[in-house]
């Protein structure tokens, strides 16, 4: 597992430069609650037909930040982005709430601060 830190401003450019659709397989978008009202967002990729090659781009952000969308680069990312919005209560461009959670259920269950 290779971890590379990026910032929210550059993540789109980095992924655009890195992602070749016949070489890399987009696994998922992952969120991780950190201390002091911060969270980590991870974009996880694996290589086709290679043994155990995973690359993780990560950015540490505040809950108020808006995460740029990568759906135009990787169409299948939309579902992970919507999950992230539901589970952590952050904003991702062009991804709306309500994939898993209804309006009357507990909100942002994984954010670790607002239950």
């Amino acid at each position: 597992m290779k971890k590379i830190e990026v910032s929210l401003d550059t993540v789109r450019e980095v992924i655009e430069g890195f992602y070749e659709y016949k070489k890399w397989h987009f696994l998922t978008l992952n969120g991780l609650a950190l201390a002091e009202n911060k969270m980590e967002v991870q974009w996880i990729f694996s290589k086709y037909e290679a043994l155990e090659e995973t690359v993780v781009y990560f950015a540490q952000i505040a809950y108020t930040d808006v995460i740029p969308s990568i759906v135009d680069l990787i169409p299948s990312a939309i579902i992970s982005q919507r999950e992230l919005v539901d589970m952590f209560g952050v904003q991702v461009e062009g991804s709306e709430k309500g994939l898993y959670l209804d309006e009357d259920s507990l909100q942002n269950p994984l954010s670790g601060c607002s239950l």
């Binding site: 696994l27 992952n30 609650a33 169409p75 299948s76 992970s80």
Partner: peptide
């Protein structure tokens, strides 16, 4: 544990 993230096959295939 701090985090357990489960990415399931059907979930990832929904766009397809």
């Amino acid at each position: 544990l701090d985090r357990v993230r489960i990415k399931t096959p059907t979930f990832a295939s929904i766009p397809a």
